[in-house]
Nucleic acid binder design. Structure first.
Lengths: 205, 205
DNA sequence: TATTGACTAACGAACGAACGTTAGGTATAA
DNA sequence: TTATACCTAACGTTCGTTCGTTAGTCAATA
């Protein structure tokens, strides 16, 4: 008999449900139904409901650390920036759209993002995570990118943090729109392209 | 004996609780406790729990229609724009900061906004409302403003919709940050000021 | 003016259903 | 044989809701 992976299935289903309904509004019965077992069987794998949430969050956190571009990139590291020299607006647009496609479609990342949005006003731990993952890290990443492009002489010497906010925030807003209305992804992709091109044109030295 | 306003108190408390916990995760007992009555008494004022949510949403909707700048302004109306001619970056910064302070502190607006954020993935009606109030109307408002400033000769003739996204999105993101971490309002206000000034400098004709 | 009756808003008690959780049994695989 | 994964059954609690009652208000009537 093949190895059972019920525990992982539970975590998958839990993330699915928590990302739409939130933790409190998701019941153990719903979760068990989604997995296809009786609710009592969940307790063979987890101590209680809170333990499931904790493990889901841990998984989301780990997946983020492993996969997020924003947490890892270092624009002061020559190894990272060496193929970014002379970046054109088209390059940047392509880069951003690629990252965006990934961020929108990776199941763990997108569901984790929704979970944080839903729980941010109730759960202090998740609120902090939301600020870190979807604000601080993103802003830091693009601030680094702006500093790099200014240093390189590609962009005007303006406040790089403000530039990063102006560059990344529309994308953040459009990601949220796509999470709510996925059918608008093409429209958003076009807007992102226009935005990046216009940003580079406007800030070009 | 003075006139009772229990019904309004229930709606107030319901908005308070829904805006933090969401609808499903808020119980009738919690709500009754918050108002200071027994839970059975709620049914003297509302048919059921859903009726309370519907009325809260209706109230939020009405309050938005009455008070939101974004839903009412018309940048093609000379009556609206006549005192906006020759707007400087400082004027715009002051205007935006005033609007932002209001949007952040008006209890109905801020709690209504949180409610929409929390319920956007579960409740289709509220998802639509979220897109309208916090995306479409905002974008339309600022697109109108950009068109006006371009027409006036104050700003470069670039795509006004993209300009509006670049102008408004950082503010949207910072509003969400303040909803989560209200103690960062001063920091955000400073960033908003810098952002508006830099935007006008960059796009100045 | 006093009495009546309709109406209201609050109550305690109770309903069946669903909640998260535990106990104990059974089958399977190491 | 032991451990594991799942089961059924049941636990006490809370859920949203209904019922019948009570106290108070107000207008019409006697």
């Amino acid at each position: 008999m093949e190895k059972s992976n019920t525990r992982e299935e539970i975590l998958e289903a839990a993330l699915d449900l928590f990302a739409v309904n939130g933790y409190e509004a998701t019941s153990i019965s719903q979760l068990a139904d989604a997995v296809g077992i009786r609710k009592a069987s969940l307790y063979s794998h987890f101590a209680n409901k809170q333990d499931i949430l904790d493990t889901v969050v841990e998984t989301v956190l780990k997946g983020y650390a492993d996969r997020s571009i924003f947490a890892r990139a270092d624009w002061d590291d020559p190894g990272f920036t060496k193929d970014k020299a002379g970046m054109t607006a088209e390059d940047a647009a392509k880069l951003v759209r690629g990252q965006l496609r990934y961020i929108l479609h990776d199941p763990h990342i997108s569901k984790g993002r929704k979970l944080l949005v839903i729980e941010q006003f109730r759960n202090a731990e998740l609120a902090e995570l939301q600020t870190k993952q979807n604000y601080r890290d993103v802003l830091n990443y693009f601030t680094g990118m702006m500093r790099f492009l200014i240093r390189e002489g590609s962009l005007k010497d303006e406040d790089p943090e403000i530039m990063a906010a102006q560059f990344s925030s529309p994308i953040t807003v459009w990601i949220n729109l796509c999470d709510r209305e996925p059918e608008r992804e093409d429209e958003v992709m076009e807007l992102v392209g226009k935005h990046v091109m216009q940003f580079f044109e406007i800030y070009r030295k």
